[in-house]
Amino acid sequence: MWFDAWSEVFRVLLVGAAAYVTLIVVLRISGKRTLAKLNAFDLVVTVAVGSTLATILLNSDVSFVEGAAAFALLATMQFLAATVSSRVKAGRSVLTARPTVLVSQGVLLEDALRRQRVSADEIRQAIRSSGQGDISQIAAVVLETDGSLSVIAGDKIGDWSALAGLPDIPAEPRR
C-alpha cells in the first residue's frame, strides 16, 4: 500500500516533530549521563526510546501524550538506575559490569581474555591506538564497563591507584 490519506501523512509530520522536540527536552532534563557511553542498561533504554519514537510516529492508536509519558518514564527509570548504581554498591554490581584487567604488567591474562571474549589482536590494536609499541611496557589494559579498552603505559602508572579494587592487579607491582 503506497498511500492511504493525506491526514495520516500530516499526523506523522506533526506528531513526529512534537515527539522529536519532546525527546530532546526529556534528554536535556535527564542530564549528560543519559547520553554517556553505553553500558548494558543504557543500551536497553536507548533501544526502548527508539522503539517508542517509532511507535509514536507510525501507530495512530498511540497518542502523543502517551508517547511523551513513555519518554519521561524511560528517562526517569534511567535516572533512578544511574543513581542507584552510583550510590549503592550492590546496585552497581546488578546494573553494570565490573571492569576487567586483560593485561597486567605486560602479560596477557588469557583466562580474562577468554571470559570476556576479547582476542589478543584486539588488545594489540588498543595498545597501538594508544601510541605504544611494546606490550611489555604496558602496565595494564582494562576492559571498561562500557566496552572500551583503557591502556595504561608502564611509565604512566604512577602509584597504581586508578586500578585499585580491580582483580588481577598485583599487591606489589613491578617497578
Rank of each mutant, 00 (worst) to 15 (best):
V21A: 11
T22Y: 05
L23R: 01
I24C: 05
V25I: 15
V26S: 08
L27K: 03
L27D: 07
L27A: 14
S30I: 02
S30P: 05
T34Q: 10
A36S: 14
K37F: 04
K37A: 07
L38P: 05
L38M: 10
N39A: 13
N39K: 03
A40E: 06
A40I: 13
V44P: 04
V44I: 15
V45Q: 12
G50N: 06
S51I: 00
I56L: 00
L57C: 03
S60Q: 03
S60F: 08
S60T: 07
D61P: 15
V62M: 08
S63C: 02
V65L: 14
G67H: 05
A68M: 06
F71M: 11
L74H: 04
M77A: 13
T83K: 12
V84D: 08
V84H: 02
S85V: 07
R92Y: 00
S93N: 09
S93M: 10
V94D: 08
A97Y: 01
P99G: 13
P99T: 04
T100H: 14
V101M: 11
L108K: 06
E110M: 06
A112M: 14
R115Q: 15
E122K: 14
E122H: 11
I123V: 15
I123N: 12
R124Q: 09
A126Y: 01
R128M: 05
R128V: 02
S129K: 08
S130Y: 10
S130V: 07
G131S: 04
G133A: 06
G133S: 06
D134L: 10
S136F: 15
S136Y: 11
I138S: 12
A139T: 02
V141I: 12
V142G: 08
